[in-house]
């Protein structure tokens, strides 16, 4: 699995919408204040993340991105051609 879930701490305002919506309870609000003065969201249990993007969809500040290449199964590459 080459997908990488990234929270840009300086963009996060600690609103908690992502924490609430995560189906796997991966996220939490950190107790260390960020440079902007917010308590940002962090991956408390990163291994449970299934990269479903629900947190990204609910984030008002585009603070969460999921990068990397999705693992391509054989027929998928056929499809994409």
């Amino acid at each position: 699995m080459a997908l990488k879930h990234v929270i840009e701490t300086e963009r996060c305002k600690g609103c908690g919408l992502c924490v609430d919506v995560c189906p796997k309870d991966v996220l939490e609000i950190s107790d260390t204040v960020s440079a902007k003065g917010y308590f940002p969201a962090v991956q408390a249990r990163p291994d449970d993340c299934i990269h479903c993007t629900l947190c990204c969809v609910m984030c008002p500040d585009v603070a969460i991105t999921i990068t990397g290449s999705e693992e391509k199964t054989a027929e998928k590459t056929m499809e994409e051609k």
């Binding site: 699995m1 997908l3 993340c49 299934i50 990269h51 479903c52 993007t53 990204c56 969809v57 585009v62 969460i64 991105t65 999921i66 990068t67 990397g68 290449s69 999705e70």
Partner: peptide
């Protein structure tokens, strides 16, 4: 399993 997600180009 899972999807990528990134900031749209039209957003600064």
């Amino acid at each position: 399993m899972g999807k990528t997600f990134s900031k749209p180009e039209a957003l600064t």
